[in-house]
Design a protein around this nucleic acid. Structure first.
Lengths: 340, 340
DNA sequence: ATTATGGATTGGAGCGCTCCCACAATAGGG
DNA sequence: CCCTATTGTGGGAGCGCTCCAATCCATAAT
């Protein structure tokens, strides 16, 4: 039993237009008529046809999520899937459906453009490490409203985003290490050209500054944000004879890499060297020893991004308003810094 | 510059119908005409409007994935997100888009029905632990072709599915434990009413049988598939004074639970008791000691499911053909069974 | 009672496609 | 060279909706 606007209209003894107004909660319908129509809709279980609606110029009722990452295991990477999960829940709660895209620049170079050409979404949440200004300019030009998760600096672009407080997260971690009496704290950076790496680095520097310690560039490690790279680089520190008593890594896997090297050199953790990571991936709690790390609130990250996007879609927020919502992070103290 | 069938038709000097036939690769167009039209399409970058197409009775170009799970962290749970990732990649490669649904029966009870009423997908991949026959009957009745990941037994229903080989996975794990000389192997089951739990249990029994060992029901533990439950139940084994020298758990988290209790009782692993898990979640490799476990090939699970669904959508496979594709699993040997 | 006024309601046009039938062009057989 | 098969092509109808004049109907003001 398929119902359409027309069939509902007939049943209610009104016209198509009126039913449409009721369905879309638009003004200009007498309360009694609205009520009557609503009853019929309830009885029949009528649901508007999304494709027809969207073809006629309305919305699609879909939200897109795209992850820009060259990592084929993008979902596994960091905390994507936990954020995604929150977004999905929020999307469903707001009666939208969720389209999941993932762009690996290595494969189909222009994959991400299909979001524009196919026009299947009303709005977009953009995540990932490989977001380019080009991408955002395109979506803006295609008039697809978007919200970023994670902040970035661009020349020509003002956009809204949700980001966790990397500055304060890093600062908490480093202050914690300082509080343990550590003075020479290595910072294992990821790719330093990203906004959040800079924020973390500032947190690191400010924490040291407040403790009256100068930043020693010999303790700053940069490179790809991978476990293997961290391992090699911490090994190099040993070979160069650099002394240190603490390590703060920009993500948990890099902390694991550092811990492996420490174990190889039979350095006592946390007594000789204390280690803190970032992200609180599931494995962090299970690592031996369990890893002290900064936990991002992935659920809120996703929720706030959706709320912001919905505000934009409802016209309550300008698409290029450039609002930034910052989500606090918590330091989770485990045994790489404090003996249980 | 927006193009439509009509505008392309005009440019090519043919009719809408002809262009449509070219776009959809239908027969009945002279080669030269087809070529000509194809050129114009290429030049203009014309892309058919999916909503219009679908309204007019065509396909949506979307594949849905739904996870039935009461766990709010469904994506985190087991290996969902790794399978999802593979599905996404495969979907994109086949020029479909992916809609992600997640049903928690606790929240909106009829959430999953929107997939039927909204008709946004051409086909569905169904995952999760809480799939009911009712769900599948509904999708069948709504004529939405689907493929399951994981096998199940239903009365009235024949469906196609992709599942990993739980029987052989379990058997490999148990044979491995037997090979270490273990004789009294505990099996920590999840919810035993599921097909794959039964398959695993058969694998366990058959491995024992071949080694000439009788199954001792005192060694079989059942309950919810959670770390906490496993912990409590292994603790109970100690309290009851049950002797054992091996543990095979139906998932990694339960293996972790068991290992915690062993550590508390200062039981040497693997010498006194060897432990194997199932799934190979990321944390398994990082656990102390690293966990021997059965790795499911999540990528192939997703890929095969998509391939099967696409075959159905192309009419190459009957929706109710009842084909089962079995994906082998590998035993990953780590230090809970073999000292490094 | 009559007209202005503004909100409620109607229904046509059109979104871009697929489906399908009618018709045109071509090929084959006598 | 004409008549019939066959294949190729054109375009109307319609999918279910939104948008937008045009029209209708109350009510209040004259």
């Amino acid at each position: 039993m398929k119902h359409t606007l027309e069939s509902i209209a007939e049943l209610a003894g009104v016209s198509r237009g009126t039913v449409s107004r009721v369905v879309n909660q638009l003004p200009g319908v007498k309360p009694q008529v609205r009520q009557k129509v609503q009853e019929i809709i309830e009885q029949t279980g009528y649901v508007p046809h999304p494709q027809a609606r969207s073809l006629a110029g309305g919305a699609t009722g879909n939200i897109g999520v795209i992850a820009f990452s060259d990592n084929p295991d993008y979902l596994t990477h960091h905390i994507f899937y936990e954020v995604l999960q929150a977004i999905q829940a929020e999307t469903a709660a707001n009666d939208y459906d969720l389209l999941l895209f993932a762009n690996r620049s290595t494969a189909d170079k222009d994959y991400w453009k299909r979001i524009g050409t196919r026009r299947k979404v009303d709005g977009l949440i953009i995540m990932g490490e490989h977001i380019q200004e080009e991408h955002l300019l395109y979506f803006r030009q295609q008039q697809i409203p978007f919200v970023l998760i994670g902040k970035r600096a661009y020349n020509k672009l003002s956009y809204s985003c949700v980001t966790s407080d990397y500055y304060s997260g890093a600062r908490q971690a480093v202050e914690h290490l300082l509080g343990l009496g550590k003075r020479r704290i290595v910072y294992i950076n990821g790719l330093p050209d990203m906004y959040h790496e800079q924020a973390r680095y500032s947190g690191y520097c400010d924490a040291l500054a407040e403790a009256g310690i100068d930043v020693d560039q010999a303790l700053i490690i940069e490179g790809e944000a991978k476990q293997e790279i961290a391992r090699v680089q911490v090994q190099a520190l040993f070979e160069r004879g650099v002394l240190f008593d603490g390590i703060f890594a920009a993500n948990d896997l890099m902390a694991f890499g550092a811990l492996e090297v420490l174990a190889q050199h039979q350095v006592e953790v946390p007594n000789k060297v204390a280690v803190a990571g970032y992200d609180d991936i599931q494995a962090a709690a299970y690592y031996a020893p369990p890893l002290t790390t900064v936990r991002q609130d992935k659920r809120r990250l996703g929720e706030e991004a959706m709320n912001m996007l919905i505000a934009i879609l409802r016209g309550q927020l300008e698409p290029d308003a450039g609002v930034t919502t910052v989500i606090e992070s918590d330091l989770i103290i485990r045994q790489t810094t404090v003996k249980s």
